[in-house]
């Protein structure tokens, strides 16, 4: 576990000035009205296979994420973590297998845009923001609202929407950079901006691919608190290599290896698992 030396930079007050707990974030509920989650799982992956020109990146993968859960996915390079997110978000189509969002939405039949609109948000492994636009404009585009062409032609930010953006700007600590082009931000700031874009997008399931890469210890600490505050109202799937970070946020960890689940359980459990040790340390 990592040391926690910087209390002044972390924890609730930064993003919860009203002190009224998570609800003050105004992040909405874990499952929107349209989404059927009677069985308590927000994401179901069963028997997923993905191969690239004969190379099997994902083999017979089974994974279930509960509503409001904060799940960490770990695994060595090339284990298929990013590919799994590609499958969930519709970027890559699985060769076979089932992928359901809630109980009824078949992800394998939906386009990327439909999946995003249904409520799955994603942060890329390489931070991807709109470089030519300002920080504020990046958040404006991500904001949860009607995203059709006609709506964009006539869009005006309402007072409530502006407040929401300001709130998130404070949360991700980029208030003073709001008018800077996003391309000029540091790597860590871009990571935060992308997380901020997810916050204003307000998805029910957040997929975060290596969110703390390139962040300082203090920033990592802060991100851990932020994610913990998001859980329950949202479901999160976090891919990370930083074990300290994983330990500080996750109650449940899944280890991926060669495209399928190797072990699942608390971090202590999986770290004690023989096969996991083998995979990580080599024989």
């Amino acid at each position: 576990m990592r040391a926690t030396p910087v209390p002044e930079f972390m924890l609730e007050p930064a993003f919860d000035p009203a002190g009224s707990g998570r609800d003050a974030l105004g992040l909405g509920s874990a499952a929107a009205k349209g989404l059927d989650v009677r069985h308590g799982t927000i994401l179901t992956l069963e028997g997923i296979n993905v191969s690239f020109d004969g190379f099997r990146a994902i083999t017979d993968l089974n994974l279930y994420i509960g509503v409001g859960e904060l799940r960490c996915i770990i695994g060595p390079n090339g284990a298929g973590k990013t590919t799994m997110m590609d499958v969930i978000t519709g970027k890559t189509r699985p060769d076979n297998g089932v992928a359901y969002f809630g109980d009824t939405l078949d992800l394998t039949q939906m386009s990327e845009v439909e999946i995003a609109q249904a409520g799955i948000g994603r942060k890329f492994q390489k931070p991807t923001v709109f470089e030519a636009l300002s920080v504020f404009e990046n958040l404006e585009l991500a904001l949860k609202t009607d995203k059709s062409v006609w709506a964009s032609l006539r869009a005006r930010l309402s007072g409530a929407q502006k407040d929401r953006i300001e709130e998130v700007l404070t949360t991700i600590r980029l208030e003073s950079s709001r008018h800077r082009p996003a391309g000029l931000l540091s790597h860590g700031q871009k990571q935060f901006l992308e997380i901020g874009m997810l916050l204003v997008q307000d998805p029910q399931l957040l997929l975060l691919d290596e969110p703390v890469a390139g962040m300082t210890d203090a920033e990592t600490e802060f991100t851990a608190e932020l994610f913990k505050s998001l859980a329950r109202k949202h479901s999160l799937m976090v891919v990370e290599h930083d074990m300290g970070f994983v330990g500080s946020i996750a109650d449940h960890v899944t280890v991926l290896h060669q495209g399928s689940v190797l072990a699942e359980g608390s971090l202590e459990e999986v770290q004690a698992n023989e096969r996991v040790i083998e995979v990580y340390l080599g024989r």
């Binding site: 978000t89 970027k91 386009s111 990327e112 845009v113 995003a116 609109q117 948000g121 994603r122 890329f124 991807t128 923001v129 709109f130 470089e131 030519a132 636009l133 404009e137 404006e140 585009l141 991500a142 995203k147 059709s148 062409v149 964009s152 032609l153 006539r154 869009a155 874009m197 997008q201």
Partner: peptide, 24 residues
Amino acid sequence: RSKFGRVLTALRDAENRLMFCGYD
């Protein structure tokens, strides 16, 4: 100057990101 214009700029620079924000 409209949001439409900013979406176009976003499209030019990072089309994938834009799709995952829910824009077609």
